[in-house]
Computed example of a mutant assay.
Amino acid sequence: MSLQLMDIMENEYSVLKELFQALEDQNQYLLKREVFKLDKIVKVLEEKSRNVAFWEVERRKITAKRAMREVVAESKDEKMKNIYEDIVELLRKIQLQKDTNEALIKQWL
Rank of each mutant, 00 (worst) to 15 (best):
V15D: 03
L16E: 04
N27P: 04
F54E: 14
Y13H: 11
D39M: 11
V15W: 00
V52S: 10
E56A: 07
V35N: 06
V15T: 04
A22Q: 02
E34R: 09
Q28Y: 02
F54I: 13
V57I: 15
D39T: 08
E58S: 11
E18C: 13
E47P: 00
K17I: 09
K37S: 05
D25I: 05
Y13W: 08
N27C: 06
E58Y: 03
L45C: 06
K37G: 00
E47K: 13
E47V: 07
E18G: 10
L16F: 02
F20Y: 15
E47Y: 10
N51P: 01
L30T: 02
E58G: 06
Q21P: 03
K40I: 08
E24Q: 15
L19Q: 01
E24S: 14
E56N: 13
E24G: 07
V57M: 12
V44G: 00
Q26P: 05
K32Q: 08
E34C: 02
I41F: 04
K43N: 11
Q28A: 01
K43G: 09
N27I: 05
E56R: 09
V57A: 14
E24D: 07
A53Q: 14
N51E: 15
V15A: 02
V42T: 07
E34D: 15
K48V: 05
L45F: 02
N51K: 12
S49R: 05
F36I: 09
E18D: 11
A53V: 09
R50L: 11
F54K: 11
F20D: 11
Q26V: 01
S49T: 10
F36T: 15
K17E: 12
A53M: 13
E56S: 13
V15C: 01
Q26D: 04
E56L: 10
R33W: 00
L16P: 01
R59K: 15
E18I: 09
Q28T: 07
